[in-house]
Amino acid sequence: MMGLFRSEVYQIRKTLAVKMLFLFILLTSVFLGIRESGASYATEIKEAGWDYLLYGGGSLLSSMEDYSLVVLLAALLAGWMVSSAFETRTIQEAVCYGKSRTKVYLVKVVTYLITSFLMCLVVWTGGSIFIFIKNGIGTQEVVGNLCQWNYIAGMLFAGSLAYLSIFVICGVIAFITQKTSITMGICIIGIAFGFNIITALLPESLLKIVNYTPAGLYRQVLKMDVSFNDIIRTSCISAAWIVAICAAGLWKFKRTELK
């Protein structure tokens, strides 16, 4: 299994697209962060009454709420890291060599999830770091139920898990389609827009159910008045979804004829 991991890391290091994407989001988030720490932006925020965004914690919340960007990153990486492995036949080569399908699948999914998470972390923190430095983390009055550090830690932990439950769906789609373009299309259109369409069409009574699915889990913690119970509940439900979706993907992959 370590051999598979090492080869995955080696491949990521050599994939120009992933490095370019990483550089792009790093520079973009740093640029945005510098802009948001400027005086004119601060005035704009105060006038809109969004004082919490002046602080590091609020800025982090604002970055993490951008669902579309997260799904876009997940879709791109699912295509480049997972589906392309079928197109280059490296997954088939590993199976031919005798690596169990379970190991091949787990290594690929875990590597993809870690890479996606790290990319998102760069987006979320890259922009917030300047506001952290300039205005500090925030005050107790800014957030609802938790002290600032607990709020940030909880938001990062539970929010990351909630988003990982979406990433893993993209990863499993990549394993099923085995085509880079189809994976990206389904993930971007199906997940980014599909979830929004579903939540827009569903009646109020059913929306509560959506909040416990990957489509709505992130909203349970990415809010001002998050509680410790919200964080624990969301983390557990997200972890359960990740395991369940992974298991479903593995079940399917073990029965898939590889071309």
Binding site: Q11, L16, T90, Y97
Partner: peptide, 18 residues
């Protein structure tokens, strides 16, 4: 089973690692 954006040597190294 070859990866297009790597050289021949890098492909062999990747396969050795795997």
């Amino acid at each position: 089973a070859v990866i297009g954006n790597m050289t021949a040597k890098e492909n062999m190294h990747f396969q050795c690692l795997m």
